[in-house]
Amino acid sequence: MAGEFSRTSRIGDQLQKELASLIQFEVKDPRLGMVTINEVRVAKDLGYADVYYTVLGLDDNAERLAENQAALESAKNFLRSRLAKEVKLRVMPHLRFHYDASVVNGARMSALIDEAVRKDQKQDSNEE
Rank of each mutant, 00 (worst) to 15 (best):
D50A: 07
K122G: 07
K28R: 13
L112R: 02
E86L: 11
D13P: 11
L72D: 03
E115H: 10
A116F: 05
Y99W: 03
N126P: 01
V27C: 05
R7S: 10
L19F: 00
E18T: 12
A116G: 08
G3S: 15
D120Y: 00
L89N: 13
R96K: 09
S110H: 04
S6E: 06
H98S: 03
E39Y: 00
E18Q: 10
A111D: 15
V117Q: 04
N77L: 15
T54V: 13
H94G: 06
L15D: 10
D13N: 08
L19D: 01
L22W: 03
L112C: 03
S81T: 11
R118M: 00
V40D: 04
V27N: 04
G106E: 10
A75P: 02
Q24E: 04
K44M: 08
L89A: 15
L112F: 06
I11E: 12
E115V: 03
T8A: 07
L56Y: 13
V35L: 02
K17D: 11
A111T: 12
K85R: 13
V42E: 01
E18N: 02
M34T: 11
L15N: 01
S110R: 12
L19A: 05
N126T: 07
A116N: 03
M92C: 13
D60M: 05
S110N: 01
S125P: 01
K119C: 03
L56M: 09
L72V: 00
A116T: 07
A84H: 01
S6K: 04
L15M: 15
R90D: 02
V55A: 12
Y53A: 02
A75T: 03
V117T: 06
I23K: 03
A62E: 14
K17N: 15
M34S: 04
R118V: 00
S9E: 14
M109Q: 15
E86S: 11
A66S: 06
A71P: 00
K44S: 14
L72A: 08
V103K: 00
K44W: 03
E115Y: 05
N38K: 01
V87E: 12
D29M: 10
H94K: 05
P93M: 00
F97K: 04
K17M: 02
A116C: 06
E67K: 07
D50L: 13
T36Q: 04
R108V: 06
A49Y: 07
K122L: 10
R10H: 09
R108P: 05
M34F: 15
N38Q: 06
L89G: 07
D124Y: 12
Y52W: 12
H98A: 08
F5T: 14
V40W: 14
S110Q: 12
Y48N: 13
V55L: 07
H94S: 04
D114Q: 15
L56H: 14
S6T: 15
N68W: 02
L79N: 09
I11F: 02
M109N: 08
F25V: 11
K17P: 06
E73N: 15
R7Q: 11
I37C: 10
K88N: 08
H98T: 08
L112Q: 01
D45W: 03
M34W: 13
L95E: 13
E127C: 00
S9T: 15
A75W: 11
V42P: 10
L112E: 08
V87S: 09
Q14C: 01
K122Y: 09
L83H: 09
